[in-house]
Design a protein around this nucleic acid. Sequence first.
DNA 1: CGCCCGCTTGAGATAAATCAAACACGGTGG
DNA 2: CCACCGTGTTTGATTTATCTCAAGCGGGCG
Lengths: 252, 252
Amino acid sequence: MHGNATRCEEDDKLVTLTHKFPPSENPSPCKTCRVRATSFCDVLIGGPAPSRSLTQHHETAARHDLFEPDKTHESVYVICDGWAFRFRRTEDGRRYIPNFLFAGDVVYGFSKNAGFSLQALTDIRYCKFVRAELKARIREEPRTYDAWIAARIAERTELAVTAAALAQFSAAERIAQLVLRLRDRLDARGMLHNESCAFPLRQVHIADATGLTTVHVSRTISAFRKAGVFTIDDGKLTILNLAKLRRIVERE
Amino acid sequence: MHGNATRCEEDDKLVTLTHKFPPSENPSPCKTCRVRATSFCDVLIGGPAPSRSLTQHHETAARHDLFEPDKTHESVYVICDGWAFRFRRTEDGRRYIPNFLFAGDVVYGFSKNAGFSLQALTDIRYCKFVRAELKARIREEPRTYDAWIAARIAERTELAVTAAALAQFSAAERIAQLVLRLRDRLDARGMLHNESCAFPLRQVHIADATGLTTVHVSRTISAFRKAGVFTIDDGKLTILNLAKLRRIVERE
DNA sequence: CGCCCGCTTGAGATAAATCAAACACGGTGG
DNA sequence: CCACCGTGTTTGATTTATCTCAAGCGGGCG
C-alpha cells in the first residue's frame, strides 16, 4: 500500500497447506515419538488413564505458512518434528515473532483479526487433532483439563516475560534471554546434548523476535562469542558458559 | 540485595489482604453491577442458562498489593470497581506492567516463579469465586467453557500485541497504543462518555507499561496534547481526535 | 562463473536515556 | 496564615544505545 513493503511481499508465501502431503509411511508415528512423554501429547494419547486416543492425522510441511492469519481452525496442532514460529506483520512490512515452536509444542491460534500466523522454519511434521474431540476430552477428563490449563497459563506467562524483556532489557540481554529460554525448553524435551543442539534460526529471526536490527544482532552475537558465552554456527547452538548466560538474563 | 533498589522497597507494600473488609452493605451487589452484562460475570452469574450462581464473596482493597507474587490461589477474582495492574520487578528495582485491569476483568494468576503480582491502583472492590466451582462450571456448561476459552485467547492475544508494540513501536506509538486499547476496553464496558473517562494512571505507570522513562512519557504526552490527539488531566482521559489516534497506532 | 543470501564491519545519525533543575499542588504542622 | 515538604510533572542540556546507510566477504547454487 505505502511504505517500503519490499521486505514483506516476497518473504511470506501465503501457501496454506491445502495440498495434503501423503500420510506418513509410519501409520502411527506417535508410538515412537521422542517427545511424547515430555509434551502435551502424553495427556492426549497415552498416560495413566488410557482412554481412547484422539483422532490423529499427520502431515508434513516445507518452509511455508501453515495458517492464514486470523482464521479459526477446526484443528489443534502439535508439532512432531522441526521448527516453526508465530509472526505478525505491520503495515510497513516489519515482522514481529512472539515465539518459536518445536517438537511437542501445541499450536492454538490467537484471536481473529490480531494478524498472527504461523510459519514453518524448517521442514516440519505435525499432528492434527480435531478440536471438538479435544474439547470433549478436556471436559470429561480432569487430568486433561488440568494439563490444558497449565499449558495455557505457561504460554501466557512466557508472553508476559517476553514483553517484560522487550520493555526493559538491553539488546544483549534480550538476545541472551531468547537463547536461554530456547535452551531450557529444548533441554526439557531432551533435545539438548552436551549444551549443544540444532538451531535453525537465522539472525533475521532473532532480530524480529527481539525488536532489533540484523546488524545489531550480528554485533551482539559476536560479542557473546568473543566473551565465551555461546556460539551459533551453521544451524547449531552451543552454550559455552551457562552460568554466565543465566547471570546476564537475571541481571545479576 | 545489590543495585539501586531504592525505587523498589518502599513502593510495593506487600500487604496481602488477609485483613478482610466488612462485607459490602449491599448483600448482592452483582444485581446492580454496571458491567455485569458486558463482562465475564454474565456467564458466571446470569444469562440464558440460569443455573445456580457461583459462591460470591465481595471485598474491597485500598492501594496495596492484592496478591503475593507466585502464589497459587484458591479463588478467581473479578474486579467490580476501581483499577488495578499486574506488575513484576526485576532485581534492580525496575517495574514492568503488562496490563491494567478494571471493572469486569477476570484476574487469574500467571505461573508460579514468574514473579508477577497484582496491585490496586485506586481503591477497588472485587468479587471472589471459588476456583473449584468455576472449574466444575466450565466442565458442565458449554457456554461457560466457550466464554472461558474465548477470554483466555483474548488475553493471550492482548499480550502478544503488547509485546509486538514494545518490539517495534516508537515511544509515541507505544503510548498511543496503550491509551487507545484502554479506551476501547473502557468503551466496551460502557465506561466511556463523550470520549472521556476516569484515568487514574500516573505517568510512571505509563512509563513502566511502555518501557520508557517518566521524563520521556511527559514529553510525548505533551506533544499529543499540543497535536490535539488526547489529553490526560488530573485523573481524566479525553480523546480529542480518535481517528488520528487510531492512525498513529496502525502506522498509517 | 557469477549471483544471491546471510553475515560482518565501519561511520554517521537519531531516538530515548540520563542528569539536573524547577514548578505546581495538596497536605501538614507551626 | 504561612512555611515547608513530598509527589508528580515539566523543561533543558548532554550522553548513549541502537539504527541507518554503506561496503565487503564467504559460501552455496544455478
